[in-house]
């Protein structure tokens, strides 16, 4: 992945189109006989917050979980189509799934910290931990906690159990743990749905900071949240993509009536 360079005049709140970090083509997913995703064709831009919105059951989580092949472990899962991450076909048989998941990190809806200390949680996913000195490990912990704006809150109690943190802090710790593995893409599956408004805002601000370094794909039910943080928006309904484009386009000038109704929180058949 290369970062786009050069000066451009940007409208306030709008970012120029960027190269696609993740490209999904003709993706169909089944769980047993249930056809969950239908002919999905979307692209997620690098160094942007790509937001997937849509009602419950529209296939948002299934789509996001396809990008790091988390669905592979689900019984009855079957997929057809292609997904390219950084130009690599990740649906290929030859792909190393564990390595893919290091490159495409994921944070789940409910914060899940392991029953270990805060610092051990940050280092949990790192592969060559034994080769690092204590000082190097501490540096990694500090860097990633600073990235997630947790350092000031927990620096004096790194050896405390992670479960002693508030839910909002736990979710930011989960993000720090994901970042410690050095992914290129970060998938966030409704990361604020179990948090209070203040903690949700903290995670939103964190995403805005993280998009400078990472490509973010973010699933949310919350239209206002999408409006606040998204750069690129994908609207899904009944397992299909209805419309996608910049946030400005979808919120102010959508092509489909269904998109307009859903984003204006009006009743729709979706």
């Amino acid at each position: 992945m290369t970062r786009s360079t050069g000066l451009r005049i940007i409208q306030p709140g709008a970012l120029p189109e960027a190269a696609a970090a993740v490209k999904v083509n003709d993706l169909n997913v089944w769980f047993g006989t249930a056809h969950i995703l239908r002919e999905i064709a979307v692209s997620f831009q690098e160094y942007r917050i790509n937001c997937i919105v849509g009602p419950s059951g529209s296939g948002k989580s299934t789509l996001i979980r396809s990008i790091n092949r988390m669905n592979d472990d689900v019984a009855g899962y079957c997929a057809k189509g292609t997904i390219h991450v950084d130009g690599k076909d990740i649906m290929s048989e030859s792909i190393n799934v564990a390595k893919l998941r290091q490159e495409v990190g994921m944070v789940f809806q409910k914060p899940c910290v392991f029953p270990k200390s805060i610092s051990e949680n940050v280092l949990f996913g790192m592969q060559d931990l034994k080769k690092l000195t204590v000082q190097e490990r501490l540096q990694i912990v500090e860097n990633n906690l600073k990235l997630t704006a947790l350092w000031r809150e927990v620096s004096h109690r790194l050896h405390d159990k992670a479960v002693t943190l508030s839910l909002g802090q736990q979710q930011r710790l989960c993000i720090a743990r994901t970042l410690a593995v050095k992914p290129k893409v970060v998938l966030l599956d409704e990361p604020t749905s179990s948090l209070d408004p203040v903690s949700s805002r903290a995670v939103e601000e964190l995403m805005l900071e993280l998009k400078k370094e990472y490509t973010i794909v973010f699933v949310t039910h919350n239209i206002q949240q999408a409006q606040r943080v998204a750069d690129h928006l994908v609207f899904m309904c009944n397992g299909g993509v209805i419309e996608q484009g910049s946030k400005q386009k979808l919120f102010h000038n959508p092509e489909k009536e269904l998109t307009r109704k859903y984003l204006n929180e009006e009743y729709c058949d979706c």
Binding site: M70, K99, R101, G105, M106, F108, C112, F114, G125
Partner: peptide, 18 residues
């Protein structure tokens, strides 16, 4: 062991044995 622990560990790139 809650399923989310397995998922969270897998999502960090840990293989089955890890």
């Amino acid at each position: 062991v809650p399923e989310i622990y397995r998922e969270s560990a897998s999502a960090l790139g840990l293989n089955r044995w890890q």
